[in-house]
Amino acid sequence: MPSNTAAVEKTEGLRLGSLRIRPGKLLLYVILGLVAVLQILPLIWLVLFSLKDNQEVFNLAPFALPADPQWSNYARVWTDGNIGLYFFNSVIVTGTAVILTVLLASLVTFAITRMQWKLNKLVLGLFMVGLMIPVHSTLIPLFSFFNTIGLMDHHLSIILTYTAFNLPLTMMILLGFYYTLPRELEEAAIMDGCSIHRMFFRIILPITAPVVATTAIINMIYNWNEFVFVNTFISSDSLKTLTVGIQNFIGQYSTDWGAIGATLVISMLPILIAFLILSNKIVEGMTSGSVKG
């Protein structure tokens, strides 16, 4: 496109833009506000759901207030079973798996995108294939594997499984960011006599903090809510995670939905908090990282 026409368009755009800046912005805020309300409704629904009895769960409109809020649902969830212990297990498993996944994925992505070696594309491909297997195909082979090496009914079995299954996804997200890092970054670091490990942990990892936080959030949510692997690999009640709380209220012929709602609310609170904290990191990390542009 010839540069003069572009310039004309730009000025026009600017003028138009400044003219309707007010109604435009207003409309934008109205839309954003509406979407925000829509997105927060599920949370309100869940809280209402957790206060209903089984009759009301089915017969009241989703957002109708329960006639007599069933706080007992929470009491039941709290007293039945070892929710404290499950919570602790969830934190251990999710925390370890998230740290392990993000660290391993960062290391591999760094090696693949920033270092020079012949097989890097092939290794990348190997990881990507890991995204493609349906979870239920892996249950029998993995059970038999963990059983053979004696890791059955042990937290390591689920931690390692979560890590392996989330590595490819985490790497793919990291990949796009690593490609955009300027080469000068490493050159400068090496000029300064920085070792490669120091460069990775001191420069690369901090500068990718926003995307690391992003992948950490995604990993955290996946691991926290996962139950198929937990049920398959863990038998001892003392090792199970919060998702068994939901199981506890599913009966042979009927299900206690209110209590399940209460379990869902209780188990969502910790990740909500973790999410809000990590979410700030996406922005914070960037402002500190953008010093080097």
Partner: peptide, 14 residues
């Protein structure tokens, strides 16, 4: 060990 119906069936097979 207690599992709900569906998960129970799965685990039994696995």
């Amino acid at each position: 060990e207690v599992l709900e119906n569906e998960q129970y069936k799965n685990k039994l097979q696995v």
